[in-house]
Simulated assay, not measured.
Amino acid sequence: MSLSITQSQTVNQSVIRNFVEITKLRLSVSVVFSSVAGYLLGADTIDFFVLFLLCVGGYCMVGASNVYNQIIEKDLDALMDRTKNRPLPAEQMTVRSAFILASILTIIGIAVLYSINPITAMFGAVSIFMYVSLYTPLKTKTPLSVFVGAFPGAIPFMLGWVAATNNFGIEPGTLFMIQFFWQFPHFWAIGWFLFEDYKKGGFFMLPNGKRDKGTAIQVILYTIWTVLASLIPVVGVTGKLYLTPISGVLIAILGMGLIYYALRLYNQKTAKAAKQLMLASVSYITLLQIIYVADKFIR
């Protein structure tokens, strides 16, 4: 009796672990965090049920994208140290099971987002389509894959605003632009310090395919554009999306920190400097979203 209970617990733990890994829990939660920030910025009054639906629908959509991605890249993932222990290449889950899971997550995700409003569901569906059908296959073909992937990657922050307002305008467009530019230094930093591992899988993640001065200059340029885009709401030209000068100063300080790490990568051209830039970029976008939301509710 105790043996069957132990076996059952082991199976349950394995299923949970596979679900967490194949849907990329940490990444999915960070994406949901962006959507929640966008919702709080757009909402006149907070509807916690809608917020709950956004979290569920958002996680399902991101999770589905990640599962489809890993189905397509199963054989390539097996070649790289970073991904070889994922459920599919490690044969802890079958492709059929993964496809069924991805399909269920897609249906639930679109249905839940549609229950908020149709525009939110449409953007969620566009995000999955672009990530799976365009970004994923292009990763082994061209460095432009990062540009294509920046579109679905920038949707979550904007998606929250659309969920709150049932409208797309200058405000969600600005949120989209901020996260769009941010994708480049973030993913190029990852592509830099994981260069050798990506090479095993045949992925082209850096803009000119090399860890050199040209790539580092592009990282700096996109980092500057990210910071400038982040400061646009201070000027008061983005409708209801407004940032007070005090918050603008805080964002500028964060931005100078991000630019500092981009310059360090240019000067050092090392994997360590790239990893530091990646961590700085994650801190930047997270703190930026917190400052934006805090600014709205404190002023």
Rank of each mutant, 00 (worst) to 15 (best):
I100Q: 11
P89S: 07
L105F: 00
R82Q: 13
S65Q: 03
S133Q: 15
M158F: 11
C55E: 14
N117L: 07
Q70C: 10
A102I: 02
I291K: 07
S230T: 01
N18R: 08
I107V: 11
I259A: 07
P207Y: 12
D81I: 14
N69C: 05
R96W: 15
Q9R: 15
T165F: 06
M93N: 08
D47C: 07
K240E: 11
A43P: 09
A229T: 01
A98V: 01
Y39Q: 03
G248V: 02
L27W: 11
R299K: 14
V20K: 10
R82G: 11
N166G: 15
S4V: 10
I46M: 10
V67L: 06
V249D: 09
Y135C: 00
A274W: 04
V132Y: 00
N167C: 08
F123E: 02
E196D: 14
I22R: 00
N85W: 15
K74V: 09
T45C: 04
I298F: 14
W225P: 00
F157Y: 12
T142Y: 14
T136I: 05
I46R: 05
V282W: 12
Q7I: 10
R211I: 04
I285H: 03
V162L: 06
Y39D: 05
S14T: 15
Y292F: 15
V235A: 14
A37I: 02
I178G: 02
Q70L: 07
T83I: 05
L76F: 12
Q268F: 13
P185N: 10
F49D: 12
N12Y: 14
V249F: 14
I217Q: 03
G38K: 02
T142H: 13
D212M: 04
T6W: 13
L144T: 05
V11W: 10
P87F: 03
A216C: 04
